[in-house]
Nucleic acid binder design. Sequence first.
DNA 1: CTGAAAGCGCTTACAG
DNA 2: CTGAAAGCGCTTACAG
Lengths: 340, 340
Amino acid sequence: MAGIKDVAERAGVAISTVSYVMSGKRSVRPETKLRVLRAARELGYFPNAGARMLRGERTNIVALSSPMHEYTDYTNYSAFFFAVAQRARRYGYDVLLLMGEDETEDLMRMADSGLVDGVLLLDVTLDDPRVACARLCRVPVVSIGIPRETDGVLCVDLDFELMGRWAVDRAVRLGHRRALLVGDQGDAYDNGSNYLIRTRDSVFARAAECGMAVEFIPSVGRTMDAVSASMERAFALDPAPTVIFGQCSLGQLNNIVGYCYSRGMGVPEDVSILALGTFGNAATMVRPLDEIPMLPFSSCGRAVDLLVEAIEGRRGDEGVVELIPSKYLRRGSMGAAPSA
Amino acid sequence: MAGIKDVAERAGVAISTVSYVMSGKRSVRPETKLRVLRAARELGYFPNAGARMLRGERTNIVALSSPMHEYTDYTNYSAFFFAVAQRARRYGYDVLLLMGEDETEDLMRMADSGLVDGVLLLDVTLDDPRVACARLCRVPVVSIGIPRETDGVLCVDLDFELMGRWAVDRAVRLGHRRALLVGDQGDAYDNGSNYLIRTRDSVFARAAECGMAVEFIPSVGRTMDAVSASMERAFALDPAPTVIFGQCSLGQLNNIVGYCYSRGMGVPEDVSILALGTFGNAATMVRPLDEIPMLPFSSCGRAVDLLVEAIEGRRGDEGVVELIPSKYLRRGSMGAAPSA
DNA sequence: CTGAAAGCGCTTACAG
DNA sequence: CTGAAAGCGCTTACAG
């Protein structure tokens, strides 16, 4: 509740002096400075954020746009939120969550109200309307995810094409010729969820290059029964797949392993399994799995780096697309293809 | 970038008229109003947030304080974030994440800078320093979690005492006399993480009343190997427990089930398992489990309700403690105790 | 029904 | 080394 005037009065100086002491933008006689600092501390003075904003000062807030949809499975989002918040904190920024369904309205409001210094877009779809907003915004915007049209925006993402290629290459090297790609819920692809499509298509493309057959089934549910039913159909194929790429949740992967075990199939003796886009947590499964994880701390961290650079004017608004390679974590669930 | 002056000029009115049109705080001639609205739309006008704050208007932002610690397992936090954000949105509020390690400093800064209209505390420990801050704050604060001293703060939480009693009562009714409580990581209790302690102690207390023996083991790790080692020791007891209460993550529960199966113990024929404080997702396990879940949407939703009431002055700052009952979800993993 | 002007709490160019 | 004052973009009491 104490303002700069109260501090000035208590310290016996002008408000400008208080301001300069706080900002350090000009040198102040040590004794004066001390009096001011003591007064500020005693009064519990914090500069009014509104007044600073009005003067065009940074707010040290970045918005994180992460719209909620009906189909949003938010289980793993906190990793992204934490990653963003942690890195932002390092630069002295706080994070304002924008989770309204109406993505673009929130965005324009924030960008033009002067409340935030920059914006991060999460969960960017191929034709995300927020990207068009980004081009109009007076604050810098960084997209975590690669839209179809990238010109004029800063984009960072994990290299999901590379993820797909790595998966296929590893399987092919182990002699596998028939793969099953278990996808996420079908509507996640329909809604253009970017990384899912990119990974899946990269698997398809690379498999075609390598002469490997790939069957794709989206998940229809998360329970053991739902997963079993899907797997049942997949393994009824002749010849049956010898390797499974799981582009799905850890729970579904658990059920896939459970299904294999229930059918008497050993991992990796009878079937190999590789998790794609998980969160490094397939190590904790009953049967730990090889995985090529998301690395949210890498992608989000880098996105914050770029955003802060842009905010502080150390970067123009030329388009940038940075792809970050994931890594391959071995847990022994990928083995040589069983000989026919 | 367009300001109220630009809108006024384009509409041919005074800035006060623009202001009144935007706020609706006084009636304006329909034609004038229309001209103003059109001008505002054409210029993409959004009121400057700083100027409004300076005038003491609401910012329509609430802070969500959720400090990150070394030991924080953030896997399930997004459910709370989403729950808060969703309900806040309904009232027209955005959410500012405060995740700095230094909990109280962030809090005071926010509360006194005028940037937020209210604050929510997440992950409140028994002697949480943020609660003391809350009493000093000039904005309302709602604690999600019950600290030791609740006077002068608004508190909402799930009824974890009831959760503990329900667990024990259900087991006792099924004839179980020896239980194993598998806890979260040990340091989570040491750091005073509120709900863990309350649930655990409630299990202890109720078990003592009912003449049931309870062995407690904190988790030492999340991998199958770590969980197996702990379970090994627990089942070496004579007589061995016939029911397991799992106050731990879904991954660890999966490993507990995996351990039981590997030892040839059926669930619930040989051992019953009940998950406490999970997120309704034990339905998707290979062996679905009975659970008494967290219900973040209930507790956080109610917390936002209270906060908004306080912000809008429809509630004094008398202390309030609201406990919300969870529910018991049956999945067939709790059965009659095997006869000795 | 509408407008001119004070003032919110800061920062900073200007003056000394 | 320090201060008096303009001005950021709004809201609202006052005036008509």
